[in-house]
Simulated scan of single mutants.
Amino acid sequence: MFVLIRDIITETAILGRLCFCGRVICNTLENRSKAIPCGMYAVLNSMSPKFKRELPLIWNEGVSASRGIRIHRGNSAKDSKGCILVGMGRDVKKSLITESALAETMVTMLCRGVSQLIIENESMH
């Protein structure tokens, strides 16, 4: 199971850390105005019609799979229309994550064996 802990909120983004087996494996970034609700989500890799590659798709009873929320590469809030971006590094002052292609590949591979994602808020500032 993955756990995404949101820990920083900026004017445009919500930054967090994605954990697997209790360890932080990468950073996350969501568009603040389009962030999905906290909760438990199902995770399943599938071919993304938009990105034309295998990516994790997440959904639950409140957020349908047809909404197309993916975990994918990107560096800033403008790269997300409601999806979760992943990156190996982050710059909180600039609301950016870095090395996102590497993080996407790793998370996509891990999601072949993971079926749940929990999203929760840490005390954000």
Results as ranks from 00 to 15, higher is better:
residue 18 L to D: 02
residue 67 R to C: 07
residue 77 A to C: 03
residue 45 N to L: 09
residue 14 I to C: 11
residue 73 R to M: 13
residue 45 N to Q: 11
residue 73 R to N: 07
residue 16 G to Y: 05
residue 20 F to M: 04
residue 37 P to M: 02
residue 52 K to F: 04
residue 42 A to P: 07
residue 94 K to T: 13
residue 103 A to M: 06
residue 8 I to L: 12
residue 17 R to F: 04
residue 79 D to F: 08
residue 15 L to Y: 02
residue 47 M to Q: 05
residue 56 P to Q: 01
residue 102 L to Q: 14
residue 41 Y to N: 06
residue 13 A to V: 10
residue 100 S to C: 07
residue 80 S to W: 00
residue 29 L to C: 07
residue 100 S to Q: 03
residue 58 I to T: 04
residue 23 R to E: 15
residue 69 I to F: 05
residue 85 L to Q: 00
residue 86 V to P: 09
residue 94 K to P: 10
residue 70 R to H: 10
residue 74 G to D: 06
residue 103 A to Q: 04
residue 16 G to F: 06
residue 70 R to G: 03
residue 45 N to M: 07
residue 68 G to L: 09
residue 24 V to P: 12
residue 45 N to T: 14
residue 86 V to Y: 10
residue 42 A to G: 11
residue 7 D to I: 09
residue 28 T to K: 08
residue 60 N to H: 03
residue 103 A to G: 04
residue 94 K to I: 08
residue 102 L to P: 01
residue 77 A to F: 04
residue 69 I to W: 03
residue 94 K to Y: 11
residue 10 T to V: 00
residue 38 C to E: 15
residue 90 R to V: 05
residue 55 L to R: 08
residue 41 Y to W: 03
residue 87 G to R: 00
residue 10 T to Q: 00
residue 14 I to D: 12
residue 99 E to D: 15
residue 92 V to S: 09
residue 22 G to D: 08
residue 52 K to T: 05
residue 92 V to M: 05
residue 83 C to Q: 07
residue 53 R to T: 06
residue 25 I to M: 03
residue 84 I to C: 10
residue 48 S to K: 07
residue 29 L to N: 02
residue 42 A to K: 12
residue 80 S to M: 01
residue 95 S to G: 05
residue 52 K to A: 06
residue 52 K to L: 13
residue 72 H to M: 05
residue 22 G to M: 07
residue 99 E to L: 08
residue 69 I to P: 05
residue 82 G to P: 10
residue 15 L to P: 03
residue 25 I to L: 04
residue 15 L to G: 08
residue 80 S to T: 00
residue 60 N to Y: 00
residue 101 A to W: 08
residue 45 N to I: 08
residue 14 I to E: 14
residue 43 V to S: 06
residue 28 T to F: 06
residue 25 I to K: 02
residue 48 S to I: 05
residue 98 T to E: 12
residue 48 S to R: 06
residue 24 V to H: 10
residue 66 S to Q: 15
residue 15 L to T: 02
residue 51 F to W: 10
residue 33 S to P: 06
residue 35 A to I: 11
residue 48 S to C: 09
residue 26 C to A: 12
residue 74 G to F: 03
residue 65 A to I: 04
residue 100 S to E: 05
residue 55 L to H: 09
residue 87 G to S: 01
residue 100 S to K: 04
residue 47 M to L: 08
residue 32 R to M: 10
residue 11 E to W: 02
residue 100 S to N: 03
residue 67 R to E: 14
residue 103 A to T: 04
residue 71 I to V: 13
residue 57 L to G: 10
residue 6 R to W: 05
residue 58 I to N: 01
residue 92 V to R: 12
residue 95 S to N: 03
residue 25 I to P: 01
residue 73 R to T: 06
residue 38 C to T: 12
residue 7 D to K: 13
residue 14 I to N: 11
residue 37 P to E: 00
residue 101 A to F: 09
residue 19 C to M: 13
residue 47 M to N: 02
